[in-house]
């Protein structure tokens, strides 16, 4: 169970990206986070693994306060939280396999990893994860030789290497072809349904939300404006989330 309590983030410039946000995510849920660009979706996801330090509030995971964890504890917490990014965030010049193995960095001894040495089991595991996302044959190519959809699958394989209990996906399909979107989303669904990993996924397209999400939270200018089932988003709610001028597409 992940509990967000009165989470607030004010950036150095005074911008209030999150304003007193509270909600719970039960284990194993597929939660969609929606809202306009700049509504605080990315900030919210990054506060959960503290890539961004929240200004105020608490994030409790199975009772442990993530916001109060020390740097050493944070390393152990982060390695249980996988993350997938809109721009994939692969290291372009490294091989696919190296990118995937990077998912184990939280587990292996820093001193050995500096020499680019990974245990045999981890390498086998990396190949297995690449097989799972269907691109095992690309393992020894450079990451930037892959297409966008393939890169995002490498990103998912990297997150899977962490044996995650939570998966944060920050607009994982926003910079992909709509056709590819379903392939990526179905991988996330598979991880959620078959591995029982809690997924927090920010999305732009409502049809994807309807298709994949168990539950939705919506943000507008940092405030939580909706929390409920995807089918409960009617036209009135839609206007509230996306603003008066918005039109539904798809």
């Amino acid at each position: 169970m992940l509990q967000i309590r009165n989470l607030t983030k004010i950036y150095d410039g005074g911008l209030k990206a999150l304003d007193n946000v509270s909600f719970d995510v039960p284990d194993g849920q597929f939660l969609a986070v929606i809202g306009l660009s700049g509504s605080g979706k990315s900030t919210l996801l990054r506060c959960i693994n503290r890539l961004i330090e929240p200004t105020d509030g608490q994030i409790l995971w199975n009772g442990e306060d993530i916001t109060a964890a020390s740097q050493e504890e944070m390393r152990r917490i982060r390695r249980k939280i996988g993350m997938v990014f809109q721009h994939f965030n692969l290291v372009h010049r490294s091989k696919v396999i190296t990118n995937v193995l990077a998912g184990r960095l939280g587990y292996i001894n820093p001193a050995w990893s500096l020499l680019n040495r990974f245990p045999k089991e981890d390498i086998d595991k990396a190949i297995k994860q690449l097989q799972r996302v269907g691109i095992a044959e690309k393992a020894y190519q450079r990451a930037d030789e892959l297409s966008g959809g393939q890169q995002q699958r490498v990103g998912i394989a990297r997150a899977l290497m962490q044996d995650p209990q939570i998966m944060l996906a920050d607009e994982p399909v926003a910079s992909l072809d709509p056709v590819l979107a379903h392939s990526i989303m179905s991988h996330l669904e598979d991880i959620n349904k078959n591995d029982g990993v809690t997924v927090l996924c920010s999305l732009h397209f409502l049809d994807l939300v309807h298709r994949y999400a168990d539950r939705v939270v919506a943000l507008n200018e940092g405030k939580l404006v909706f929390e409920g089932l995807p089918k409960d988003i009617d036209d009135a709610k839609f206007k509230e989330i996306y603003g008066r001028d918005a039109e539904r597409v798809g």
């Binding site: 982060r78 721009h87 290291v91 960095l105 939280g106 587990y107 820093p110 500096l114 990103g155 962490q162």
Partner: peptide, 19 residues
Amino acid sequence: GPLEAIQATGANRLQTIVY
């Protein structure tokens, strides 16, 4: 981006620099 991604895996500062 890659910096953020490597940090998110639980890598420490030195590992982030190397990877």
